[in-house]
Each structure stands twice: as structure tokens, then as C-alpha cells.
Nucleic acid binder design. Structure first.
Lengths: 222, 222
DNA sequence: ACCGTAAGCCTACGGTGTAGGATTTGTCCA
DNA sequence: TGGACAAATCCTACACCGTAGGCTTACGGT
């Protein structure tokens, strides 16, 4: 009979069984599978077949672990090479962000609500600025434009990932019917557009809003 | 000597000492004073000089309490009367939201990351739609425009309230200096605009981005 | 007078983050 | 070769959390 009780002390194998990378990666998949609240130090340790306290040799505490989750997700953003066409480049960068967000929908609220200080975030800022400066915007205008686009992207992605899952298509189910019923008397414009509100192609909405911003920015281009 | 130990049973006064309103209001001030994580059922009960379990006579559980916090904040949005001038009306509505967000900065991430199903949120949707329809947008265009503006407002306010507090003005302190140092070699555009990035007048950024969207929308106006 | 019900309190259970060790193992230098 | 040191694991324990279930008291209707 093997000793099923885990041994104490440093493991026999040459190297550490636990690494920061393994911990953070497992935390990310855990967020996606069970939601953010399900990621507890104890639960994470259980997944890794490890004592909860062992995690603390690689991670400061739970809060910084969440920081490292956001960094990992941001590191997954595959920034494109600028082509020199202003509109295309802004779209490409924003879509790169969107792909990362869709790949990790449950992580996204975490990423978007934390201050982006990681090197990945700085790289994004850098490339957006390069596109804006290339397009002829002076430094102050470029910063304003950067912030406007960033705000839209953050808001749009946040709403996309926290919307009811795969809320696109043919389900005119209870939710929509309830809206129609409740607002039939009080909110005329809302009921008028209820059919349009019921469906939402997130990709289309994303490019639509982005196009609005880009159009206005191109009007300001020197 | 008065009996310092709290008495059991229903209180002697004619009415209940605890109400849902009192609980939610105290929870909101607690969020603002100590952050969201500090709002625990036990801590809230301590504030109200009450047993933790008494709260459950007025609130289902902690999660729905958070829902009620967002509803209270949303109820504080003072929607303006539309004037008929498209640009002014959109600005006024967005600013009404912004005022509520600034009034409750620590509550704002909570509000913005939850699905807006309350009647206050529906009222906002209704008024924005009325402005868009009045401006001549057909129903489908109006919904797209609504979502674009909403995304921008959400993203902008989220970044505003989670930015370093009162980060505007004369402090070129460690944060900014570090950015300048770290990126001096690798990120040329970022360092170039570092002075502009250091300062941020949130109100100005908000109106700038909003103006971009409105400008583009007016181009599409029939 | 009675009794149901609302509103408060108490106890208890299982879960959480994490401080402070105890223990084992690899590394490195004398 | 041996002995000190550091790294990595596990164990124990504490304070706190949300909340299920029950107890006690007072009000309000009949």
C-alpha cells in the first residue's frame, strides 16, 4: 500500500512541483469554469493537489493573485502590426482586445475593473499612440483620442461578457416578453424598439460604435 | 444600571427599528467609507446596533443587498427634461449619470458591472431612445446608437472612479516618474506623451469622447 | 383573551484568508 | 565530507464570513 498521506517537506523530485505559472494558469481556468467567487485559495490548492499554504510560497495573497490573472489575460492579447491605414489599425487593435475578452469571458470584468499597469497594457497604449501619431494627431489630441477609444472598448466588452450567454438569435423567451408587458403602458419608445433590443450581435455593435469614434476622429485629423 | 444587554424579541416601540431603506442606505455609506469588501452582513449589523441575523428579515441575502445598493444609486440619477437639441440632450443625460457616479465613486463599479434591470435603468433607456427617435433615427439605428453611447459612458465612468483619487494637477510624483523611467528606452510614443498622460481632467475627457460620438451620429442623421 | 405573525436575538455549521511554525530536501561552500 | 542555509511543502490555529434553524417578545386582528 502506497502512503496516501502526503509527505511533508520539500518534494523529492529535483524541482518544485508548484510554480507561479501553474498556479495562475489553474486560477484562470477555474475562473472560467466556476466564476470568480469560486476561486479560493483552498479550492485552488485542492485543484492542484496541494496544501493551501503552499500557494503562498509563490503568490503574495489572493488579491495579487487576481492581479496576476489579469496580467495573464492581457498577455494573451495578440497586437497586430500597424498597416498605416488609420481606421483599419484602430479596428485591428480593438478586435485583438475583444478576442482576448471573449476567450476569457469570466475573467474580463476582473481585467477591466483593475488599473492596467502591466507591461502588456503599456504595450497596447504604445501601439495605439503610434497609430494616432502616425495619423497626424498632436500629442494632446492623441491622448484624448486614446482615452475615448479605450473607454468605449472597456464599456462595450464589459457589457458583452456580462450579458446573458449567447443572447443572440431566436429566443423571444420570457425575458423579452416580460419587458414588453411591463413597459407596454409607461415607456412607449422602449416598447417601440423592443424587437431591436431583443437581439444583439455583439460583434456588430462593437464595430458600429468603434466606427462612430473613428469617423469623428478622422474629421479632426490635421 | 440600565440593562446594557440587548433585549430579545420584538422591540417595544410601536414600529420596527429596522427597515430595508435604513439597511440599504447604511450599506451605501459603508461602501463609500470603507470599500465594497468591507460591507459584510456582520459589519453592517454592527453599524446599525443590531444582530446580524435581524437583517435577513428585510433583505434576502448579501447578493440581493448589493442589487439594492445599485438600485438606490441608479435612483439618484436626476434625468433632465429633453430640450429637443440632440447634442445638448445627450450630454445632459450622460452628465446626469456622471454626477451620480461621482457622488458614489465606490459604488460605481458595482453598478456598472451588474445587469441593469431596474426601473431607473429602464427610464434612462427610455429617455435616450426618445431623444434619438426625436432626432430622426429609425428604430434599429437608435438602438445601435444607444448601445454605443452607453458603452462609452460605462467605460469612461469606470475608469474615472477607479483612477487614483484626485489624480489631476501638480503631482508629478513617483508614479509618473516611474513610467517615464521604465519606458524611456522601449516605448517611444508613450514617453513622448507622458506629460499629457500624467494629467487627466475627467470631465473634459468625458465631454470630449461624448462629443466624438455625437458628431459621428449627427452625420448619420437623416 | 387568544393566537398568528413580524421582528428582534442566539447558537451553530461549514467555509474563508492567512500568520506562525515544523519538516524535509536540495545547494553550496569550507 | 560535512555542515549551514534556503526553498518548498504541510500542519495548526485564529478570526472572520454568510446564513440555516430556533427562541423570545410584542403588536394587531378577531
Amino acid at each position: 500500500m502506497a502512503d496516501s498521506t502526503p509527505r511533508r517537506g520539500r518534494p523529492s523530485g529535483g524541482k518544485a512541483v508548484l510554480t507561479r505559472e501553474r498556479i495562475v494558469a489553474e486560477a484562470v481556468t477555474m475562473v472560467e469554469e466556476a466564476g470568480l467567487d469560486a476561486v479560493t485559495m483552498r479550492g485552488l490548492a485542492r485543484r492542484l493537489n496541494v496544501d493551501p499554504m503552499s500557494l503562498y510560497h509563490h503568490v503574495d495573497n489572493r488579491d495579487t493573485l487576481l492581479d496576476e490573472i489579469t496580467e495573464l489575460v492581457l498577455a494573451g492579447v495578440e497586437l497586430p502590426h500597424p498597416t498605416g491605414v488609420f481606421r483599419d489599425d484602430v479596428h485591428a487593435i480593438a478586435q485583438a482586445f475583444r478576442r482576448a475578452a471573449v476567450r476569457h469571458p469570466h475573467c474580463t470584468p476582473l481585467v477591466l475593473t483593475r488599473q492596467l499597469g502591466s507591461s502588456s497594457a503599456l504595450a497596447t497604449t504604445e501601439i495605439v499612440l503610434s497609430v494616432l501619431r502616425e495619423a497626424g494627431f498632436p500629442p494632446d489630441r492623441a491622448v484624448h483620442a486614446l482615452r475615448a477609444v479605450l473607454a468605449f472598448v472597456v464599456g462595450a466588452l464589459l457589457r458583452e461578457v456580462s450579458a446573458s450567454p449567447t443572447f443572440s438569435g431566436d429566443n423571444l423567451s420570457g425575458v423579452q416578453r416580460r419587458v414588453a408587458e411591463l413597459s407596454a403602458s409607461e415607456l412607449p419608445h422602449l416598447t417601440e424598439v423592443a424587437p431591436q433590443l431583443a437581439v444583439c450581435d455583439h460583434e456588430e455593435e462593437f464595430t458600429f460604435g468603434l466606427d462612430l469614434l473613428i469617423t469623428a476622429l478622422e474629421l479632426q485629423r490635421p
